Amino acid sequence: MNPISPPRAPRRARKTPMLAACAALAVAASPAQAHTIVGDRVFPATLAIDDPGVNDELTLPTFTYLTAGTTDGSPGTINYGLGWEYSKTITSTLALSVGSEGYQWQQRPNASGWANIETQLKYVMWQDPKAEAIVATAISAEWGNTGSPQSASLPSDPFTTLTFRLYAGKGFGDAPADWMKPFAITGEFDLGLPTRSSNADGSLNPTTISYGATLQYSLLYMNSHVQELPELLRRLIPAFEADFTTPVSNLDQPAPGDFGTNVTTGVVGPSLYYISNYFQLGVMAQVPISAASGAHVGVMASIDFYLDDIAPTTLGKPLFGAPQAHVHY
């Protein structure tokens, strides 16, 4: 295993997952993004995968923590990260975002550095407010050599990776039974394509697919549309999330004593979101699915500021067209 940091993958997670610098965890490869409103449904800015909509939003910071796994069971590298992202709507269905996994540092051995800058253009292809359903697509780029030099501290990739993304979300407010109405699901599928097939040292940069989903139970929705809840509960959305990454082509031969290069890695775990009218707090316990994904449970947390609610007539409105719909609880 690399003595400075665990091996990286083109994506996270998100994308994305050290949670952010450890390629095994796609979840940390792309910072969490804007919340989504479809009809009466608020989809929170989930942590394992991105939500399916566009908004004006600032995510600052996104904190990640994980201990890397090792093949022999010895203590692995302890990884931390502080990321960020800013998302700006161009129209009510199109947004441009810029962000980064941010500042990364680790122990065993000690090292630190900055991750590459990432940009994304996201488009909502279809939505049905009555059905609380939405489908979106995006193209993103992690720009090579925009972080710390690969020879210093925690390496950032020296090549650019393009990722094509597909999102979907569905709330069950139209379900026949009241207990079902607070449920919602979201999903994401990504194809990550490095722009350089190999590096100067002869190592290969694989093509990857990443995929994940969330199952949400919105007490926010229940309080507004089913039955009134105590103040302590009415702004919470508990969820269960999962995110996985699989290298599919251009694979290296694994080094002796290292994990295979075609191994699927990822995390699953519960999460909890607090939704106010102007910001969101989220935290997720990330359980690695294998030793290649991590040594034990990690944590990811973020604060998201809803600029479309904080400054709806200035910074928080689209550059062109009508402003976004707003739902206040």
Rank of each mutant, 00 (worst) to 15 (best):
L219Y: 09
L220S: 12
Y221N: 06
Y221G: 12
M222H: 08
N223C: 07
N223I: 03
N223Y: 11
S224Q: 12
S224W: 13
H225I: 03
H225Y: 07
H225S: 04
V226T: 01
Q227M: 12
L229H: 13
P230I: 10
E231R: 06
L232K: 06
L232E: 13
L233E: 14
L233S: 08
R234L: 03
R234F: 08
R234K: 12
R234I: 07
R234Q: 15
P238D: 05
A239I: 14
A242F: 07
D243N: 11
F244C: 14
F244H: 01
T245W: 10
T245Q: 03
T246Q: 14
T246N: 09
P247C: 04
V248W: 02
V248Q: 01
V248R: 02
S249N: 08
L251N: 10
L251Y: 13
D252K: 01
P254M: 11
P254A: 08
P254I: 15
P254F: 12
A255M: 15
A255E: 05
A255G: 08
P256H: 02
P256D: 15
G257I: 09
G260T: 14
G260H: 04
G260M: 14
G260L: 12
T261C: 10
N262C: 13
V263E: 12
T264Y: 05
T265L: 09
T265G: 02
G266H: 02
V267Y: 06
V267E: 04
V267G: 12
G269W: 11
P270C: 13
S271M: 12
L272Q: 10
L272P: 06
L272Y: 06
Y274R: 05
S276K: 12
N277K: 12
Q280G: 06
Q280E: 04
G282L: 10
G282D: 13
G282Q: 15
V283W: 05
V283L: 14
M284T: 11
M284L: 10
M284P: 03
V287L: 11
P288T: 00
I289Q: 00
I289G: 00
I289D: 01
S290P: 05
A292F: 03
A292H: 08
A292K: 01
G294P: 00
A295D: 09
A295L: 15
